[in-house]
Design a protein around this nucleic acid. Sequence first.
DNA 1: AAAACTTGTTTATTGCAATAAACTAAAATC
DNA 2: GATTTTAGTTTATTGCAATAAACAAGTTTT
Lengths: 121, 121
Amino acid sequence: MDKNLKLFDAEYRFACIVWENEPIQSRQLANLCEQKFGWKRSTTYTVLRKLCERGIMKNENSIVSTLVDKKVIHQYESNTVVERTFNGSLPKFITAFLKDKKLSNEEAKKIKDLIDQYKED
Amino acid sequence: MDKNLKLFDAEYRFACIVWENEPIQSRQLANLCEQKFGWKRSTTYTVLRKLCERGIMKNENSIVSTLVDKKVIHQYESNTVVERTFNGSLPKFITAFLKDKKLSNEEAKKIKDLIDQYKED
DNA sequence: AAAACTTGTTTATTGCAATAAACTAAAATC
DNA sequence: GATTTTAGTTTATTGCAATAAACAAGTTTT
């Protein structure tokens, strides 16, 4: 299936709730969304159904769970931003992000170690 | 002034044209937008005026120019994404971005050198 | 000075995300 | 088996981004 991984704001916040609580009863999910977002029951169901139609979640016997990992959504999201706004360049993104910021030695080391993990063998 | 630095998609694409061509006559700008986006003249003026009202551009004697550097918008944009979706963590963002990717030694070095530039003295 | 053109504003129109009300059907309870 | 509850769908409603048509006022051209 050709999943559209672009989650709109409301969808993303909703998905976070599901990721944190899955598998979860649809009823409970509606309650959570009511608490966290002030959503009416029908709103939760509408958002849920849209995501099910796109193959991102499923609702089987009133048990809701995700079909797409949060990591995959994050991957999609980060790639989209870098492509759209930074010409696909990670260094450009980092430069923009760090503008007016300073990193401690530990923070810098952490990132550099991280980068090394993605070097091709 | 309290500039709202959030540019919507159309606004951002428009701003890019201005950054690349400023200072530019409003007429020429309308022509460019017509070519690049297929916009009618009035669309260009509407978008332009919104950005002027927000202190992001100005239009003086039919000469359009920006009041906010592209870097600042990029800074805002990158910070917003990292905060909203990655809990403010740059490493988390990078991890998501690099998933399923490999970096050449040169690419890795480039990024690590970049990181070092932001270490506090 | 009338006509034509230019610049910019005011006022629609459209599309879609976000939210919810109203309804339906099945299941559980009395 | 009638009633109430639960799960989910269908059908609005609202708000706002994106786009543009229609208009106004100044400037240039004839």
